[in-house]
Design a protein around this nucleic acid. Structure first.
Lengths: 208, 208
DNA sequence: CCTGTTGTTATGCGGTTGCATAAACTATGC
DNA sequence: GCATAGTTTATGCAACCGCATAACAACAGG
């Protein structure tokens, strides 16, 4: 029997339980009973903290995307470093755990279909997708300026799309073949490719 | 009432109905009854052509991956063209419909989680993933040789991973924002980025 | 015609789902 | 020490799931 807890501590546990459940067994196994089992409580408790099953799924999707965002942008650091170095840190974070992980790709794939007919889920995706692409474009813009490049709006957008696509694709490849593809090599490939696309040299020495 | 059909015509209709159902409503809506509705027959007929629900899902996954593979490699053509041109055609096909489509990304995302605990589905994915990466590496190898580059094994693998990741990432971006991102621009971005990564020039004029 | 085979529908069963509600339990103010 | 509000559990229900089976419809060879 679970002991009583104060505040909305249980709410957080339930959200994490939802993510764990989806990552391990898929979205179709994310029933209220199963989620409650993962959290170590009984099913009725979910209805106490969330108005419906959709509610807890939305909260879980929000937390997942927020963690993904934070894992990348939390490593950039303050403005005391060069723009190029911050871009490098951002790229490296996007090619490292916990972003490059079988679980994160599984969660992403499980949530994505829900955003197609559920307006609330679609809004959540749009919100974090917008934040990510916007921040990413700024990073690239700063790094390019530091190297004397001053791209126009369309050129900047195209470069952002290209490098963003590169990172996303490597994220998939790394997450799907976590055993056969060394994480260090993945990072080396990503940084090298990004430096070629942007005509920028990063501080990290090219992998041997 | 559906008219009687000869041969395994119904089987093909049922498989397509499964894909349509998953693309529109998601994997959790792919029930035997719902699939039968999409095919215009009654639910019992599925058991006549497939031994179980898993059977029809595996057949649908196989057909989906095969179509994706064919859509890309069917455009390469015979060996009467240069290796560089065949690579360009392959890249373009991977950045065009029917590969770049909301439906294809949705199907991919819906099927992927099934391959994690279902061994049969995992085998299907491994099979087509292997065929794709192998063919892709050969394409790049040929195109590089044509330009006088003779990369080592590790260098060739790294370039393949990078360009493959780039294409996959652009596929996601293009499929998710089919309205806001022009397909022509996506192709221009992809070809330009690939030519920079491989140090190869393609025949297609750079987009304006 | 009739009869066996194959395609198709109709129906039912055991199990599970999401959801709602009420009962049981615990902390806290007074 | 007890009433009250907050927290947890137990139970029931209508709907739906995959699957199995029997009945029915269409055609082929005799």
């Amino acid at each position: 029997m679970a002991t009583r807890r104060a505040g909305n501590d249980r709410e957080s546990v339930l959200i994490d339980a939802t993510l764990t459940c989806i990552a391990r067994e898929g979205i179709s196994a994310a029933t209220v009973r199963n989620i409650a089992d993962y959290a170590g409580v009984t099913n009725g408790l979910i209805r106490f903290y969330f108005k419906s099953k959709d509610g807890i799924l939305q909260a879980a999707y929000r937390r997942f995307l927020e963690r993904l965002f934070e894992a990348a942008h939390g490593t950039i650091g303050d403005g005391d470093t060069t723009a190029c170095e911050r871009l490098e840190r951002y790229l490296l974070a996007n090619l490292s755990p916990p972003i490059v992980t079988p679980d994160s790709l599984l969660l992403w794939a499980n949530f994505l279909p829900l955003t197609h007919h559920d307006d609330a889920m679609a809004d959540i995706r749009r919100h974090w997708y917008g934040r990510t692409t916007h921040a990413f474009r700024d990073l690239i813009h700063g790094a390019l300026e530091e190297h004397g490049h001053t791209p126009g709006d369309t050129e900047l957008r195209r470069l952002s799309v290209a490098v963003n696509g590169l990172i996303d694709g490597l994220w998939i490849e790394g997450s799907l073949s976590a055993e056969s593809l060394d994480i260090r090599e993945l990072q080396a490939i990503g940084l090298d490719a990004a430096s070629r696309l942007l005509d920028i040299s990063f501080s990290r020495s090219p992998a041997t």
